[in-house]
């Protein structure tokens, strides 16, 4: 039985954030586009850091990288990914390698979903 995931990006959250940020500085370009660009760049780095930390068995480094992903994903409305990143951080801080590894696999899968969703959002007319 397949499990239906919620949308990778909560677009209503993104729109609220866009309105709040643009309301304050209407001439400074699209803040959400800037955050999305940063996510694409940073998530690739964090994914590589996850794999390296697991290879080395360095759960402190894994927790630190997961911590960054918690907010990086939340800012672009990737709330499910943010929750998974919290799980990775918690398991890594608890020092439980096997469950941290499982959570990382879920995070990597979700990062891929989020990137695809971002590509669709960028391609969609606004």
């Amino acid at each position: 039985m397949s499990v239906a995931h919620p949308p990778a990006i909560d677009t209503s959250y993104l729109e609220r954030l866009r309105e709040e940020l643009q309301d304050d500085d209407p001439d400074s370009g699209d803040a959400i586009a800037e955050l999305m660009g940063l996510f694409v760049k940073n998530s690739a780095r964090l994914e590589a850091e996850f794999n390296e930390a697991l290879d080395l068995g360095d759960l402190d480094a894994l927790a630190d990288s997961a911590h960054q992903l918690v907010s990086a994903s939340a800012w672009i409305g990737a709330l499910r990914l943010s929750g998974i990143a919290r799980l990775v951080e918690d398991e890594a801080r608890r020092g439980v390698f096997a469950s941290a590894q499982t959570a990382v696999a879920a995070a990597v899968e979700e990062i891929s979903r989020v990137r695809q969703a971002l590509e669709r959002l960028e391609a969609a007319p606004r």
Binding site: E20, L21, D24, D25, S28, A31, E34, L35, L38, F39, N42, Q68, S71, A72, W75
Partner: peptide
Amino acid sequence: DQEDNRVIYRRTLRK
């Protein structure tokens, strides 16, 4: 130390 967080601070407060 994270650029995305600094973006939020700037956009919210710099005015």
